[in-house]
């Protein structure tokens, strides 16, 4: 409690100032940033409430996995973190979501600013129809970075972080569509990293990929997690167990009821000794 009050204060001082971005990327920084707190979060499509009463904390510099049967609203909840639900229309988000103490749904927040701090990688690789370089440079250019050397440096960093640099360093002008599926997805990770986000949201990033590419993505996630907060949606229990520090289990028990959070906690504990019967059933593969 004391901790969160302190956080609140820090955040009030510098909402969305540039310091947040460099802080995240600076190696070994001690400050805590990129942590989400959700209080009684609900999501409604039109009149239908699909998610209700979600309370959880997303710790910074750790991997949080959202698991649950398909259709339970994992991806919908994920899109609340960077307000991508705003773009769908007719979606209302209730409750409070704070990023480092700052309410991201308050009026004065421009979702565009928020998304520079909270990046997203999608289910299917979705590189832009342009060169590898231009793909990664898209975010920085959006932020107004024009200097060639600066861009080059950012792009190299991002590609290295996404474990793609070795493969593409001599082909940066190549069209992104010439890459394989797994490479394309790592390119999308690099593209998201190039905006220097504090949080990276990943919506089943490996579900469209082969096992080897999946492995590479998981390695990348492991590499990244000491610098970036990661929230990952996955339907693959083993993957959640392998890569995440914290796991949140969501369930929609019937179609008349909104989905809710059944259990959230330390991944190891949850996979060995779940508190809730439903979690146990799901993890052991009895439904979903």
């Amino acid at each position: 409690m004391v901790m969160s009050a302190v956080l609140e204060e820090v955040a009030m001082e510098a909402p969305f100032s540039g310091t947040g971005r460099s802080r995240t990327y600076a190696e070994g920084a001690e400050e805590i940033s990129g942590s989400f707190s959700l209080t009684d979060v609900s999501v409604a499509y039109g009149n239908e409430t699909v998610i209700a009463g979600v309370d959880m904390l997303v710790p910074s510099r750790a991997v949080t996995a959202l698991i649950g049967p398909s259709g339970c609203g994992k991806s919908t909840l994920l899109r609340c973190f960077n307000r991508m639900n705003d773009e769908i229309g007719n979606v209302r988000v209730g409750g409070t979501i704070t990023l480092d103490g700052l309410d991201i749904y308050q009026k004065s927040i421009d979702p565009v600013d928020l998304r520079m701090r909270v990046g997203q990688v999608f289910q299917r690789p979705n590189p832009f129809p342009m060169s590898i370089y231009d793909n990664v440079a898209f975010g920085p250019r959006t932020q107004g970075i024009r200097k060639r050397e600066e861009l080059d440096a950012i792009i190299e960093d991002a590609l290295r972080d996404a474990a793609l640099w070795e493969e593409v360093q001599n082909h940066l002008k190549k069209h992104a569509f010439e890459l394989s599926g797994g490479q394309q997805q790592r390119l999308c990770i690099a593209r998201a990293l190039a905006t220097r986000p504090e949080v990276l949201l990943m919506d089943e990033p490996a579900s469209a990929l082969d096992p080897i590419s999946t492995q590479q993505i998981e390695d990348t996630i492991a590499e990244l997690k000491d610098r970036v907060t990661i929230v990952i949606v996955t339907h693959n229990m083993q993957q959640a167990a392998r890569i995440s520090d914290q796991t949140a289990f969501m369930l929609r028990e019937s179609m008349d009821q909104p989905a809710h959070l059944v259990e959230v906690g330390d991944t190891k504990r949850m996979f060995t000794n779940p508190n809730d019967k439903r979690t146990e059933s799901y993890i052991t593969g009895r439904f979903g």
């Binding site: 565009v112 998304r115 520079m116 999608f122 898209f138 975010g139 959006t142 593209r191 905006t195």
Partner: peptide, 15 residues
Amino acid sequence: VPTDLRQAALALGAT
């Protein structure tokens, strides 16, 4: 043009 591309650009902080 797939919706995914628009979403990706928006998620990168593009208007």
